[in-house]
Amino acid sequence: MADSPWIAILRGVRPDEVEAIGAVLVEMGIRVIEVPLNSPDPFESIARLSRRYGDRALIGAGTVMGEADVARVADAGGQIIVTPHADLAVVLAAKSRGLLIVPGFFTPTEAFAMLRAGVDALKLFPAEAGGPAMLRAIRAVLPAGTMVLPVGGVDPDNVAAWMAAGAAGFGIGSAIYSQGDTAAEVGAKAAKIIAEFKQR
């Protein structure tokens, strides 16, 4: 996150387009790429990204709901698991395969349970429902150094507010990729987000 505070969420991406999109993102310095498992043939997309960019970026899966999917992501070469929920079984499965794990949470109870399980970072989701004020409040009680990544509704217009509230990074979906976007369109969106971040 220190080098690349953005997680590019490629929901809906197809295997035949994912490498070109990945090339643009990696070239622009975005070093974490997530393929949600409700995308077309997500494990093939993860495998293609991992083969081509796995030495330069963290490639993994989002919307991971069960232990079996963790195994399939690992077998495809994925390195990071992101969930929408606080699921201990998924966390333990990811750690057992040596993968990074970033579970979703929305309450302090969920956050502390996940931290006790040894997660690598926390995903505040859905972030737009709580807003930066919620993140600021919960950071006051979380252990120092806890990485919290807001996901859901993050865009160039509110990046500064999230940063001020203590976000360690951002999961960015439609503001960086919408189903059907070309690699050039993804590059233009990413450039806007990066420029906004650097201005703050």
Rank of each mutant, 00 (worst) to 15 (best):
T146K: 09
I80M: 01
P143H: 15
P126E: 15
T107H: 03
I80L: 13
K123N: 00
A74N: 15
L124F: 08
D75L: 07
E128R: 10
D75T: 10
Q79W: 00
V91N: 00
G153H: 14
L124H: 02
Q79H: 04
M114I: 04
K123W: 08
T146G: 11
I80N: 12
D120I: 15
L135E: 14
L124E: 11
F125N: 07
P143I: 04
L122C: 05
L149H: 09
V119C: 05
A93F: 06
G118P: 05
A137N: 13
S96G: 11
A76F: 07
P84K: 02
R136T: 05
D120N: 07
A129H: 13
H85S: 12
M134P: 07
D75C: 12
A76R: 01
A121C: 11
A76S: 14
M134Q: 00
D120C: 06
L115G: 08
P150F: 08
A89T: 07
V91D: 01
L115C: 12
G77C: 01
S96W: 02
G118L: 14
A86H: 09
A133M: 03
A111N: 11
V73H: 06
A74L: 13
L99E: 05
A129P: 04
T109M: 06
A86W: 02
K95F: 12
G145S: 15
V82H: 06
A111T: 06
P143N: 09
G98T: 13
A93T: 01
A89D: 05
P132H: 05
R136P: 02
L115T: 02
L92A: 11
G77Q: 06
V73T: 00
G131H: 07
A133T: 09
P103T: 05
F105Q: 00
P84I: 07
A117I: 08
V90A: 01
V151D: 13
R72C: 13
T146L: 15
V119W: 03
V148S: 05
I81S: 03
G77Y: 03
G118M: 09
L142N: 05
A117G: 11
A121Y: 00
P126C: 11
G131D: 15
G77D: 06
G130C: 11
A93M: 11
